[in-house]
Nucleic acid binder design. Structure first.
Length: 232
DNA sequence: GCGACAG
DNA sequence: ATCTTGTCGC
């Protein structure tokens, strides 16, 4: 894929927050997602005591989850993990992976929050703006906001509220299993984000594309670790 | 000031 | 995220 840079990634935490506040004004979560034939998922893996980062993007066909394409990249971390600033650590390497991607997916699932973020610019929003693609944030844990525990059955959901705003939905993708935190990233509304999440996660807690991206990025990390460790 | 805090 | 075996519950 091809896309233009929106800003520098060589920033400090204060500058990062300023960029988030500025970009948040451009996020569009009003349109329902249109028909989607292909869906992508991105994931990042780290190495404990080194600053190597691994990213992967996989694209599958809707409904069948048939693999369309997958790419992986290795890079160095240039920003630490700071709650609320995750995209400044992960987005650069994820975007590198997207640049290598030939296909242009109809929607992208991101491992983290979308608008359910203190400044309304979670990783999914940030990637959506850079890629100019519909994105959805599907996180495994809460960053901010409050909610009432959703019902126990698959499909049960509860609004996630932050400072008086509904910023996402806490969704039960499997009965009797911990819910996931869904919020739109860009060019997609909350309802569509929840619909896509439920449509892609029938058997497991996390959406199938997210699971595929996760296992692929780990395969890449293990292979890279081996190539770097054994020769020395 | 105190507690919370995606991956 | 990562380090890790067995174990409880549907």
């Amino acid at each position: 894929m091809e896309f233009a840079p929106l800003h520098s990634w060589d920033v400090d935490p204060a500058e990062a927050r300023a960029i988030q506040k500025s970009l948040a004004a451009n996020v569009d979560v009003s349109p329902p997602l249109g028909p989607w034939e292909t869906i992508a998922a991105a994931d990042v893996s780290y190495n404990k005591y080194s600053d190597w980062l691994y990213a992967a993007v996989i694209v599958v066909r809707a409904g069948t989850f048939e693999l369309v394409e997958r790419v992986g990249v290795v890079g160095k971390a240039t920003f630490p993990y700071i709650p609320g600033l995750l995209s400044f650590r992960e987005a650069p390497v994820v975007l590198e992976a997207f640049r290598k991607l030939q296909a242009r997916p109809d929607v992208v699932l991101c491992d983290g929050q979308g608008t359910a973020h203190p400044r309304r610019l979670g990783l999914a929003c940030h990637l959506g703006l850079w890629l100019e693609l519909p994105t959805i944030g599907c996180a495994k844990s809460l960053l901010c906001g409050k909610y009432d525990e959703p019902g126990p059955d698959r499909g049960d959901r509860s609004p996630l509220v932050h400072r008086g705003e509904v910023v996402g939905s806490v969704v039960r993708t499997r009965s009797r299993v911990s819910p996931v935190y869904v919020s739109p990233g860009h060019r997609c509304d909350l309802e569509s984000a929840v619909a896509v999440t439920l449509a892609t996660s029938l058997k497991y807690r996390l959406p199938v594309p997210a699971r595929l991206a996760h296992e692929y990025v780990n395969a890449i990390r293990r292979a890279a670790d081996e190539d770097r460790t054994l020769p020395l």
